[in-house]
């Protein structure tokens, strides 16, 4: 019969469409490849000139000095400091909101709260940086007199608010996916709403909650404009939140907007820092996915 001979996979239009879609989507793969290749080339250049040990162990990051030092430690310390402060804000606030969203918000308030959070997420981080530098820092200086104008404290605090949605959305999703039957079991045993939330739902969703925190950490580490504006651009090996510091991201901004001749060691250093940042955030993202997979509760 004629009809049976028409194999759909042979139809040229069908094949063409499929090929087109595959080639479009291959751009996403090429992007990853591009990120890695473009960084790696310059990173190799960098490590031809600066020994890895110096990069890892030297206590100073001063590419533009007459005798430049290329120790990543101050940038890591600065990044760590800002991230820690941000998480100190974002974790308690974000998780409270997540619990409210998952356990208390009624069907009509939930989308409204989520909408408000989306709004927060949609505010460009330059705006938060501006707010940190011009509003929060003066306020803090009034309380802490020897606070630098550029300081990780105010940048971290504001960043903490900026990443609340990342914590609360993912954590709320995790808690909402705990089956209703489990909550009912707890209520039937005479648990109060807060006991259900804290003793049953929260622990049951713990893998998703941890993943939310890891993802927020990754966001905080990669966040650029708030720190570039408010935390300063002076690499300092310190954990004192009153000092001016530089993070990996703020250093990249500083170096890229300054005039470093292409091909200089300082120029390649930019990519070494960028690659470190890339690896760190990638590892955190993979870790988050692994935690979710590994520790997910499998209900019926």
């Amino acid at each position: 019969m004629e009809i049976l001979k028409q194999r759909p996979s042979r139809n040229p239009k069908e094949v063409l469409t499929f090929v087109l879609l595959v080639s479009l989507s291959s751009v996403t793969l090429l992007t990853t490849l591009g990120v890695i290749l473009s960084l790696v080339g310059d990173v190799v250049q960098f490590f031809r000139r600066v020994p890895l040990l110096e990069f890892l162990l030297a206590p100073e990051w001063t590419p533009l000095f007459a005798e430049p030092r290329y120790g990543i430690a101050p940038l890591i310390a600065g990044t760590f400091l800002v991230t820690a402060i941000a998480l100190l804000v974002a974790i308690p606030l974000g998780l409270s909101l997540a619990i409210y969203l998952a356990e208390y918000a009624s069907g009509s308030t939930r989308p409204r709260i989520k909408g408000t959070l989306e709004l927060f997420e949609g505010i460009p981080t330059v705006v938060f940086g501006y707010f940190a530098l011009l509003f929060v820092t003066p306020l803090l200086q009034w309380a802490i007199p020897d606070l630098n104008i550029f300081n990780p404290l105010s940048a971290g605090l504001v960043m903490g608010f900026a990443i609340i949605p990342y914590v609360s959305n993912v954590a709320a999703d995790a808690m909402e996916s705990v089956p209703r039957s489990i909550r009912e079991a707890a209520y039937a045993l005479g648990a109060r709403p807060y006991e259900v939330a804290l003793r049953v739902v929260f622990p049951a969703a713990i893998s998703g909650i941890i993943a939310a925190i890891i993802l927020a950490t990754s966001r905080a580490i990669g966040e650029t404009m708030i720190v570039a504006i408010a935390a300063g651009q002076r690499p300092t090996l310190t954990l004192d939140p009153r000092e001016t510091i530089a993070t990996m991201t703020s250093y990249i901004v500083q170096a890229a907007t300054g005039d470093q001749p292409t091909g200089s060691t300082a120029f390649y250093a930019l990519f070494a820092v960028g690659f470190t940042l890339f690896l760190l955030t990638l590892l955190l993202n993979i870790l988050a996915q692994w935690v979710v997979e590994r520790y997910r509760e499998r209900y019926e």
Binding site: P179, S181, I182, E184, A185, A186, Y187, A188, L189, G190, A191, R192, V200, P203, A204, E297, Y299, E300
Partner: peptide, 19 residues
């Protein structure tokens, strides 16, 4: 809540806590 503490309940589908 006090009522539920004195009256036990078992559901259609087993629903153990993930504990």
């Amino acid at each position: 809540v006090a009522v539920r503490r004195q009256i036990g309940m078992v559901f259609q589908k087993p629903n153990p806590f993930p504990k």
